Amino acid sequence: MGEPAVEPVPGAPAATLELGDERALAIADYHAGIEIGLRYERGVELDSNADERRRRLLALLDRTDADRVVVLGDLVHRIAEPDGEEAEEVRDLLDALDSRGVPLTLATGNHDGGIADVFPDRIDQLPTEGTRVDDVGLVHGHTWPGAEALSASTLCMGHEHPSVRLTDEVGGSRVERAWLRGPLRREPFREALGEAADGLTWNGAELVVFPAFNDRSGGTWINVEGESFLAPFLPDALIDGEAYLTDGTRLGPYREV
């Protein structure tokens, strides 16, 4: 039996993907320049973690011996065309990857609209509706995935930044980043796409929702009653999903955590 199509890296918000002849290191929601965004959006002053983010990614690249980096959307934070410190952070990351001969593929997210204009020919940018590489679908998740991505046996996405709030016996609580995994239901796509859904090649995909790589970006608390999901097809398309911590701890059905 071959390697699993998606294998989480123990202790990290990342996974390896088997994409034909390549092994990819996949992450979601890098959010370069988030500190600038927080300054303008919320008046929060934080020192930049740009160097630490890059070191963490490069250490994972060394650990997994991957041939490519795949970012499942939101490589940058501000929705406008990246410039200044934000663009510098991306440039430093691309330079570090280039020095290792490792290309970067980006599943276009809702924050990535202007990045291709700033870094032409340096990023392999996928369309907003995602795509399929070998038998793995790649999409950010802020829009409905396209037919090609949905035809894969495994669909990987970001966007949600899934997190769980855990409470201990004495009433203390903490928030942890989490994975969501489970069968992708076809019904929401039939309802949204109408007759066009009849033409979909459907292989009963497993949906894998990645935790955010950036630890300052907040997230969707998947086990808090009344919390809204961000993706237009969630939670309806993942009724039977399970949650896992990044250390591999299985929490069980995410609705019951």
Rank of each mutant, 00 (worst) to 15 (best):
T64C: 06
G101L: 01
R54F: 11
A66C: 08
E88R: 05
R53Y: 15
A87N: 06
R100N: 09
V90R: 06
V44I: 13
Y40W: 15
N49R: 15
L58I: 08
A96H: 04
T64I: 07
I79V: 15
L61Q: 05
P82W: 00
S48W: 08
V70S: 05
R42L: 13
R53H: 14
P103V: 00
R78M: 13
G84P: 04
D74F: 00
D98R: 07
L75Q: 07
V71Q: 02
D65E: 15
E52G: 10
V102A: 09
L60G: 02
D92W: 10
D74G: 08
S48H: 09
V71W: 09
L61F: 09
L60V: 02
I79Q: 11
V70G: 06
Y40P: 00
V70Y: 12
R53P: 02
S99R: 07
D92S: 12
V76Y: 09
V71Y: 10
A96L: 03
D65T: 01
G101Q: 07
R78Y: 13
L60E: 01
E45L: 14
R100S: 10
V102L: 09
R68C: 02
S99Q: 12
A59H: 09
R100M: 02
L93F: 12
L61D: 07
L75I: 07
G43P: 04
R55F: 14
L57Q: 06
E41W: 14
Y40V: 03
R55Q: 13
S99I: 00
E86F: 09
R91E: 15
A96R: 00
E52K: 03
S99Y: 11
G84F: 09
R42M: 12
E89W: 05
E45V: 12
D67C: 00
A87H: 07
I79L: 13
L94F: 15
N49C: 14
L97F: 15
D74S: 07
V70K: 04
P82I: 04
L58Q: 07
R42C: 13
R68D: 04
N49Q: 14
D67H: 00
E85N: 13
D83I: 01
L61S: 00
V70P: 08
G73C: 02
D98K: 02
P103D: 10
V102H: 05
G84S: 11
L46G: 12
D98I: 00
R63W: 12
A66V: 04
D98H: 10
A87M: 00
T64F: 05
A50K: 02
A66T: 03
E89I: 02
G84W: 08
G43K: 06
D65H: 08
D95H: 04
R54T: 06
R56H: 14
G73R: 05
L57Y: 07
V71T: 01
R55M: 12
L93S: 00
D74E: 13
L60K: 07
L58H: 01
E41R: 10
R54Y: 11
L57T: 04
R56V: 07
